[in-house]
């Protein structure tokens, strides 16, 4: 009798567990993931940007680029129903280095579904900028992945870095121009805030298990000099911090634009 009761208890307990599992499982089994690639293409006007080419900006100034790097982080996708998928925080930091082609493509695993917009931060958020080194792995590692993209005297990442040479500049300046933009807004008091989010909207982006979706994002470097705050290298060849950098952040934010979505079948 006692044994029977125990068995009975065992059964009821397990039925309860099974029911709970059954309630949870649909969510687990039917939420499939698909692959989404964000492809960043740096251009100058209509041409792909090349470090060995010379260009002319809207002010008639000669330009040749030697460096173009920017952080992309805090990626969020908004579904057509308005709900949002955010890439998990610890894996949402990327650094696009123009000189390293593999970094131009960001591969994400995203729940299947229809999406209407993509939002990302050009830079690194303030929380991460104040956390310890255990939270600064990969491209955020100040002794490895983030090299050249960190101000050690000001504890902050350089969000965006563009450097080059211009024959329009006198030889005495070694013809160099340098734009280093960063500033996460401050820790114990307000500092420069160059945190800028960019949202790109699609007609429709479909993420599914069967096909890889690639969103092409173009960064047209020619627009950097002729955006809302025009920049002439002959007037401002070096911007590293300082109040004008927030205007530069506004400039480059709007330059990131959607150039298309392409789908390819997953290779078996």
């Amino acid at each position: 009798m006692k044994v029977n009761k125990q068995i009975g208890n065992f059964v009821t307990r397990n039925v309860r567990v099974a029911l709970m599992l059954a309630m949870l499982f649909p969510a687990l089994t039917f939420a499939q993931n698909g692959k989404l690639v964000l492809s960043f293409e740096n251009t100058f006007g209509a041409e792909p940007l090349a470090f060995d080419k010379e260009y002319t900006n809207a002010h008639g100034e000669n330009l040749r680029f030697t460096l173009l790097n920017y952080f992309i982080s805090n990626i969020k996708l908004t579904r057509t129903d308005g709900s949002v998928y955010a890439v998990p925080q610890d894996s949402c930091y990327f650094l696009v280095r123009h000189s390293v082609p593999e970094t131009h493509k960001i591969e994400l695993t995203v729940p299947e579904g229809k999406y209407s917009s993509l939002t990302f931060l050009i830079g690194v958020d303030s929380l991460r900028s104040t956390q310890g080194p255990e939270k600064r792995q990969g491209v955020l590692d100040v002794g490895a992945g983030a090299r050249g993209m960190y101000w050690q005297w000001n504890s902050g990442y350089i969000f965006f870095k563009m450097e080059g040479k211009s024959k329009s500049l006198p030889d005495s300046t070694r013809n160099g121009f340098y734009y280093h933009i960063g500033g996460y807004g401050g820790f114990d008091s307000k500092t420069l805030n160059c945190i800028r989010y960019r949202t790109l909207t699609f007609e429709k982006l479909k993420v599914s298990e069967k096909k890889t979706a690639q969103v092409n994002v173009t960064f047209d470097a020619s627009k950097f000099f002729s955006a809302q705050t025009p920049i002439k290298v002959t007037e401002k060849r070096s911007i590293m911090g300082g109040p004008v950098s927030v205007k530069i952040a506004d400039n480059y934010k709007d330059i990131f634009s959607l150039s298309g979505v392409i789908y390819s079948r997953m290779k078996k």
Binding site: T130, N154, S155, D188
Partner: peptide, 9 residues
């Protein structure tokens, strides 16, 4: 100047 916000850095 308080430029660094964390002892580790």
């Amino acid at each position: 100047d308080g430029g660094v916000n964390h002892l580790d850095f």
